[in-house]
Computed example of a mutant assay.
Amino acid sequence: MRAFSLLLLGLAIASTDLAFAQMKLPSKTAPGAIETRYFTAIDGLMDGNADVILKETRQGKNVTAATLDVCYPATKGADRKDRFVANLTVNGQNLTGTTQSLGDKLPVTVKLVRKPVGDTFEFRGQISIGQTVTEVTSTDNSDLSEKEFLDNQTSDDGITPAPKDFTDVSPEAIGVRVKVDAALDFLKSLKGEAVEVGVSSLSISCDALRAGEQTINLTADPERAAALIAKAKAAPGVVAAGWTSGTVEMDRTIRFAAADWRDGDKINRDKIASAVSGVLAKTLAAKAAGAEWDANTGKLKLSFKRPSPIYPALALTETVEVTALVSPDKPGGSDRLMLWISSPVITTADEGTGPKLSLSEESTGDEEGGEPKDDNGSLEALAREFKGQRWDADKSMWK
């Protein structure tokens, strides 16, 4: 019996040893294995304004292949970018190569010396683009694994093709992601359209150049936004189109039943403008001086006049301007509307008869998180007038 027990114990130990032998414990990259590493910053290029990616293929500690991708201002201080991608010849510590810039078609020559220094690397040499020669002296450069590099490349253009409502995106704000080589034709197609193009989105970033796609930001009347998005999606080279972030801030927005504020299937803008103007005239203690709807953006610009209290004897006049935007609370059909109003913008001028006193405006910032100056409870008054709801930021819901 004892012999049988010892036999079982021996088998158990043998099985355990076999199991451990079959386990594959994680290990570092094996010596001599091929791996890809990246450098995403090499100081000194184009006065520090270059966006650099150096991709290396290594076998052990030896570099077997390298590609240098540099995006830079086409001219000094310009927003327009150019880019070159050079496959480099590796000869010991020397990295050399020639290519042509992708935009301006300028000849490019790369001559770099790469030297490991402890856990970092230094690069020295020259990069010539056309007639411009840049001396490279860059130290303390750390490399990234391929996983680390790819994790850092994720980006979100904020485009939502089919939002459930307009709490996270703005009803007038449209984003269109389009192939870079098709962007010009798309922009030309917008000429004559009742839409505004964001100037900053015309500048093609380095990320856009590398991805081959750029995002154009548009502003349109919310009542036409859905049709414009559908048209954009059908345009050549367009990858995605939808709503994005824009003017509307939820803490300055109310939501209310649409029935009393529509004329058929259209928003009764005259009625809304009259109601908003009447409420604000009371809360701002001012006389209504104008109301104008923007044909491109669908925004309502309201202006009011009131005596300036800053120096009563001069009888100066304050002009208070407020911008408003009204739209359904979600794309498609809805029985509710939402109304956003901006913080008041106040200017002071001498509007009396005879010679005028010229005044210069000095901007002053409100305290962070405080109620906008001279708002005088306008949002609460509008919510009462429209029998509407305010947005609860803590609970992310209408209240």
Rank of each mutant, 00 (worst) to 15 (best):
L284G: 02
S274P: 08
T253F: 07
L314S: 06
F304E: 08
K61V: 14
K231N: 04
T29M: 04
M46V: 14
D156A: 11
F20C: 13
F186Q: 00
N94M: 05
T347Q: 06
V199N: 02
Y72F: 15
V239D: 12
D119Y: 08
R306E: 09
L218K: 03
D185T: 00
P107H: 08
I229A: 03
L382R: 01
W243M: 06
S155V: 11
E368S: 12
T96K: 04
K191Y: 00
V136C: 04
T154E: 09
T215A: 12
D165P: 14
D374Q: 14
I174T: 02
W340I: 09
I53T: 15
I13K: 05
E380T: 12
F304P: 03
A235R: 06
T99E: 09
F123S: 09
P307Y: 11
I53F: 01
A381S: 13
S138R: 11
L88V: 07
P309W: 07
A183R: 00
A232E: 02
E367Q: 07
L379N: 09
K191R: 08
A78L: 07
F123Y: 14
R336V: 06
G175R: 04
A285K: 15
G44H: 12
K111W: 08
K188W: 00
A235Q: 15
D375K: 08
T29D: 06
A273H: 09
G192Q: 01
T36C: 04
A349E: 11
E318M: 10
V70D: 03
S245V: 13
L359D: 03
Y311I: 00
G97F: 09
A291T: 07
D43S: 14
N49R: 15
P163V: 06
G365W: 07
I159Q: 00
L228G: 01
A21M: 03
L187D: 00
I42L: 11
S360H: 05
G298A: 14
A313G: 02
A182S: 10
